[in-house]
Design a protein around this nucleic acid. Structure first.
Length: 264
DNA sequence: GGACAGGGTTACG
DNA sequence: CGTAACCCTGTC
């Protein structure tokens, strides 16, 4: 299977997947309340979970049913930029992340940098998540429930380094906890309806809504345009990006472009 | 030490 | 529709 854990961890789509300090070939990850370690071996990857858990959770999480290797054949002959981005990003996949975590994480991401986003997310988990132990009895924290964040005061949230975003986090969590915006309904919607619904949440604008649609709802047509991608589009696609041509997977391409621009 | 920027959104003219 | 303000930490 075409998967590169380190690239995914550095691709900016998730904020709780990190290499262990001093053992950079091992990544840790918390999702669905579970803790996972992934170690790079000579032949591939070794996952710390049981076969049953892999089948139930992680196979889906890593989007194993999608063929990413075939993407290269779909790129236009003359599009050297995308061809290069795909080569350098080989192994990147669009994770199927939990919806609430994705919503909160990408509200935090606005006007922010990745190390600080990660720090804020981790602090939120430590203060409002559930405390658990991994297989070697080390403590980890799950991502908080909507209700927990809704009940946290704006001032307490501010202590997580969220700044002006704490008001957004509080209000968005409240709306979700009270069912004003229903996560289950969002998961049933088409891309455009879901996007419109997400825009009701305070702190969610067009860019963040598209990130949530792509990473939390797996709408691979969503194409978030941030400052990086905006610069790329202006430089390499002055005539406009061929969205029509890449309909049905443009969002995946966006992730390769983002990684390529970030790393090279 | 101060200035600046970092995956935007909102609230005003 | 363009533009300033929003908050804060790391970096130069």
């Amino acid at each position: 299977m075409d998967i590169d854990i380190v690239k995914i961890a550095n691709s900016g789509q998730c904020f709780r997947m990190n290499p262990i300090k001093g053992r950079e070939e091992v990544c840790t990850l918390v999702a669905f309340g579970e803790y996972l370690e992934i170690e790079k071996t000579d032949t591939g990857y070794q996952f710390s979970c049981s076969e049953e858990e892999w089948e139930r959770l992680w196979k889906v999480y890593f989007d194993c049913s999608t063929d990413y290797e075939g993407l290269g054949h779909l790129i236009e002959e003359g599009d050297k930029y995308l061809q290069s981005a795909l080569v350098h990003g080989k192994g990147i996949r669009i994770l199927r992340q939990e919806l609430f975590e994705t919503i909160i994480s990408f509200i935090i991401s606005q006007q922010n940098n990745i190390p600080r986003i990660k720090k804020s997310v981790e602090t939120l988990c430590t203060k409002y998540g559930e405390k658990r132990q991994n297989f070697r009895k080390e403590v980890y924290f799950t991502f908080p429930e909507p209700m927990s964040l809704a009940q946290a005061g704006t001032e307490a949230l501010r202590d997580c380094g969220l700044g002006y975003r704490s008001r957004y986090i509080h209000e968005t969590s409240r709306m979700i906890a009270e069912g004003e915006v229903k996560l289950s309904a969002l998961q049933q919607m088409e891309y455009q309806s879901a996007k419109k619904e997400l825009l009701k949440l305070p702190g969610v604008g067009i860019k963040v809504a598209e990130c949530i649609a792509l990473f939390g709802l797996h709408h691979v047509d969503a194409f978030p345009i941030d400052t990086h991608i905006d610069a790329v589009l202006k430089e390499y696609y002055p005539q406009g990006f061929p969205f029509k041509k890449y309909e049905g997977y443009a969002g995946i391409l966006q992730q390769y472009m983002f990684y390529y621009d970030l790393m090279y």
